[in-house]
Design a protein around this nucleic acid. Structure first.
Lengths: 231, 231
DNA sequence: AGTGAATGAAAGTGAACACTTACATTTTAC
DNA sequence: GTAAAATGTAAGTGTTCACTTTCATTCACT
């Protein structure tokens, strides 16, 4: 954060809106831009934003540093151009419909619903692993990013989960516990999983991801303790 | 990371060892040092290491910048002096005995054991909230820190948890699932909780912490689904 | 082949920053 | 009260960094 541009900086939400519009007008990203984006994603995710210089990024991309500034006005803007597509994809109606379908289908039993949603979301995160890393790291440095995450991701996701749990509780399938507590538990599990595997990349015991998810969902739904009528 | 000291930098583990020794010799931390440490903890936890200058820290501490460098040789060393006490406290035998006692007492039922450990560890983290924030943020920037966390905290904690689960499984109190899966689930829950509350500080639904923990442990042990013999 | 747009090479700007040095002043301990 | 230890003031060093400017070169398109 050494120098600020003369023109005011664009906010993350503005960048997102702008990019959405550009995508609709099918404005293409040229080769230099693509190379710079990829290089920046690599460096930001490895060393963090503050520890990656624009000179490093240009070198990694194989372009002149001035090309970076001509294509993206500032380093700050480059970061936002990297993060925006993630928000656009996550909040896209196409993807959300999928999740909602999972959540609301009363035919499918809860094990399948949860494993479906978990697998689906984890696949998405894996595909965008590096950008997710940058997002979460920078969320700690910029309140604006954290707010965007909460507003665009956390709150909507929790709302869906709440409705799901609420329905299952009314069905009599779920115990009579606070829906919010259940949602929080699911959230912590997911958050902890993503953070340790995809952000901190700590080795855990785990083997195959799909198996892990299924076991986890089973444990969450049926509990760790033995119960006479179960098994 | 602008300039490196002439003398090689001390590693985190070296700093920890050194500080432990100094504590044993009852070497006191003087007032300036204390003020600088507090100021640095505040700034590092708010803005991050890279975004806090030594000049800022000195100002916040109300001392001259040169005093910072006379007391702590470098900014890098200051960071390690902040983080080391956390490791010392966490790995101290006194504290560990407590946790082990919880885990291994066969008289207490598993609900109490888990809520006990959770509450105990969360209390510790809350007491050291700012330093924990710095630790986790910087773990993303320095592999050395991440390794120290895994070696001194994660692995020992998981080992204790594994034994606990293993015993309860042999008792017949726990279902016949993979111990590692259970440990992972407990770990993700705890990790997710700490990260969202104490690092990202995202608002969740939750009310009283103790109540949240009890509900969570209940859910984990007994499952979310209704079971005829439960409730 | 020729034109406009995108890129490169190179030098430079101004600011921030970690850290140093030299000397004066205050604090602490006996 | 005095000496030693700790702190302050102030100026400076060398470096890195985001970003700019100018001019030459290459590329895409017709």
């Amino acid at each position: 954060m050494k120098q600020a541009s003369k023109e005011e900086e664009r906010s993350l939400q503005q960048t997102i809106d702008n990019l959405t519009e550009e995508l609709e007008r099918e404005k293409k990203v040229n080769k230099s831009q693509q190379k710079i984006l990829e290089a920046a994603i690599n460096l930001f995710s490895q060393r963090g934003y503050e520890n990656s210089s624009t000179s490093d990024i240009a070198k990694e991309a194989g372009v002149a540093e001035v090309t970076l500034f001509r294509n993206f006005k500032s380093k700050h803007n480059l970061l936002y151009q990297i993060l925006s597509p993630l928000f656009i994809k996550i909040t896209s109606p196409v993807i959300l419909k999928d999740v909602k379908k999972h959540f609301n289908d009363p035919e499918i039993d809860s094990e399948e619903v949860l494993t479906g949603v978990f697998k689906d979301r984890l696949e998405f995160i894996e595909k965008n692993q590096k950008v997710v890393q940058v997002l979460i790291r920078e969320a700690l440095n910029r309140e604006e990013i954290l707010h965007s995450i909460v507003k665009n991701i956390t709150i909507p996701a929790k709302k869906e989960a709440y409705d799901f749990v609420h329905n299952k509780k009314e069905n009599g399938e779920f115990r009579d516990v606070n829906e919010q507590a259940v949602v929080d538990l699911l959230f912590y599990t997911m958050f902890g999983y993503v953070l340790s595997h995809h952000v901190f990349q700590i080795d855990t015991f785990s083997n195959e991801q799909d198996e892990v998810i299924e076991t986890m969902v089973d444990l969450l739904l049926n509990g760790i303790k033995k119960s006479p009528l179960k098994e």
